[in-house]
Amino acid sequence: MTGLQQTDALPAKVKGRSQQTAKQPNLFSRIVTDLKRDKHLYVLIGPYMILFFLFTVVPVALSILISLTYFNMLEFPRWAGWSNYMRLFLDDDIFIIALKNTFIFAIITGPISYIACFLFAWLINELRPKARAIMTLVFYAPSISGNIYFIWQIMFSGDAYGIVNGFLMKTGFISEPILWFQNPKYTLMIIIIVQLWLSLGTSFLAFIAGLQTVDRTLFEAGAVDGIRNRWQELWYITLPSMRPQLMFGAVIQITASFAVADVAMNLAGFPSVQYSAHTVVTHLIDYGTIRFEMGYASAIATVLFMIMLGSNLIIQKLLRKVGD
């Protein structure tokens, strides 16, 4: 009897499960339901997503595809496979120099400019509203100025009338003018200094805005929980509360440090002496806008994109540990 009862009960269980499965909506129905429920949100975000897809996703995908071809803007692209990348890393000595300069530039200017943006924003945030607004404009102004490179060209002019040469000769450090931008030993150093001067830009404003949104009651709760000084407040309260702004600033600074071109071209010329200020972006400009080797230029752009993407992923992992 017991065996018969179990045999009779089994179909009923299977039948109940099948009925429950039938009652549950499938994936397509859930998607349709979510679209109907959040249709206003999709309408609002739709224009941005369309523009992002057309002007970011599509160009990146096309660049990766073109990097596998030979394309000179006059003939239809011819499939080349990995030959552009093999030429880039095995035969192009100038690209290796540009890659080395870019990494040196990014390793120095990236972290320093990122930390400087936050520290200046943190200090300025402690000022009164009017003083804060004035100091924000003073620090942000260089990044939005037009052609400000002539200031540095005057400072590092290669004759005795240059400000730096005049000062060094007057104080007795040198006896004759230094050709700053014609000497490979000084070119990259000067460009790094200028880029750091220009680095208080969008990230700086994002950090100030983020500091304004930190909930002040968290500091009172932190004092109760044992936080005793400003550094502990910064690490355990301020930084965790600003993770979105910190992430945004990191992306901006990484992009700026790897995409150096204007400073090098305006100060050191194009090409620079012995390629001392040559970067990946200036190499890309050379092949993309002067030689019109679009397949090779797309390979350079793809390599730069992968470097930036990898750097951003590493920074995101590091920023998740802030406040832990």
Rank of each mutant, 00 (worst) to 15 (best):
residue 268 A to S: 11
residue 135 M to L: 13
residue 103 F to A: 11
residue 206 A to R: 05
residue 269 G to Q: 04
residue 292 F to D: 01
residue 324 D to I: 11
residue 221 A to F: 05
residue 180 W to D: 06
residue 323 G to T: 06
residue 321 K to R: 13
residue 227 I to P: 07
residue 26 N to A: 06
residue 143 S to D: 01
residue 252 I to E: 01
residue 8 D to L: 15
residue 11 P to N: 08
residue 171 T to W: 13
residue 89 F to I: 05
residue 161 Y to L: 13
residue 319 L to A: 07
residue 223 A to C: 10
residue 281 V to P: 14
residue 202 T to Q: 06
residue 77 P to R: 08
residue 170 K to M: 12
residue 142 P to F: 00
residue 230 R to T: 11
residue 211 L to V: 06
residue 209 A to P: 00
residue 92 D to N: 13
residue 214 V to M: 04
residue 294 M to W: 12
residue 177 P to A: 14
residue 210 G to W: 02
residue 264 A to N: 13
residue 18 S to I: 15
residue 261 A to W: 10
residue 191 I to F: 09
residue 290 I to E: 12
residue 239 L to D: 00
residue 231 W to N: 01
residue 291 R to D: 09
residue 179 L to H: 15
residue 105 F to N: 10
residue 216 R to M: 10
residue 267 L to A: 06
residue 229 N to D: 11
residue 231 W to S: 02
residue 190 I to Y: 03
residue 295 G to Y: 01
residue 308 M to K: 06
residue 318 L to P: 08
residue 237 I to R: 00
residue 229 N to K: 04
residue 3 G to F: 15
residue 30 R to P: 05
residue 307 I to W: 00
residue 185 K to R: 12
residue 237 I to E: 00
residue 225 D to G: 08
residue 138 V to E: 00
residue 202 T to R: 04
residue 140 Y to G: 05
residue 291 R to N: 15
residue 117 C to M: 05
residue 198 L to T: 09
residue 210 G to L: 04
residue 242 M to N: 03
residue 37 R to G: 02
residue 191 I to K: 07
residue 47 P to S: 02
residue 90 L to R: 14
residue 119 L to E: 05
residue 172 G to Q: 02
residue 147 N to F: 09
residue 294 M to P: 08
residue 110 G to E: 03
residue 266 N to S: 11
residue 147 N to L: 09
residue 51 L to Y: 11
residue 240 P to E: 01
residue 285 I to V: 13
residue 91 D to C: 07
residue 102 T to K: 06
residue 117 C to P: 03
residue 79 W to D: 13
residue 196 L to P: 08
residue 283 H to Y: 10
residue 282 T to N: 12
residue 104 I to T: 08
residue 81 G to F: 03
residue 265 M to T: 10
residue 38 D to G: 00
residue 148 I to K: 04
residue 111 P to Y: 07
residue 288 G to H: 00
residue 60 V to F: 04
residue 90 L to G: 14
residue 21 T to A: 15
residue 290 I to R: 12
residue 171 T to M: 13
residue 245 Q to I: 13
residue 203 S to W: 00
residue 124 I to H: 04
residue 110 G to V: 07
residue 259 A to K: 14
residue 121 A to N: 06
residue 297 A to L: 08
residue 26 N to S: 08
residue 152 W to A: 04
residue 286 D to F: 13
residue 130 K to F: 15
residue 74 L to A: 14
residue 31 I to M: 14
residue 180 W to S: 07
residue 103 F to N: 10
residue 21 T to M: 13
residue 145 S to N: 08
residue 77 P to F: 09
residue 269 G to N: 07
residue 280 V to D: 12
residue 154 I to H: 04
residue 253 Q to I: 15
residue 109 T to K: 01
residue 124 I to M: 01
residue 93 D to N: 14
residue 117 C to N: 10
residue 103 F to V: 11
residue 244 P to K: 03
residue 56 T to H: 10
residue 306 M to L: 15
residue 160 A to V: 09
residue 119 L to V: 15
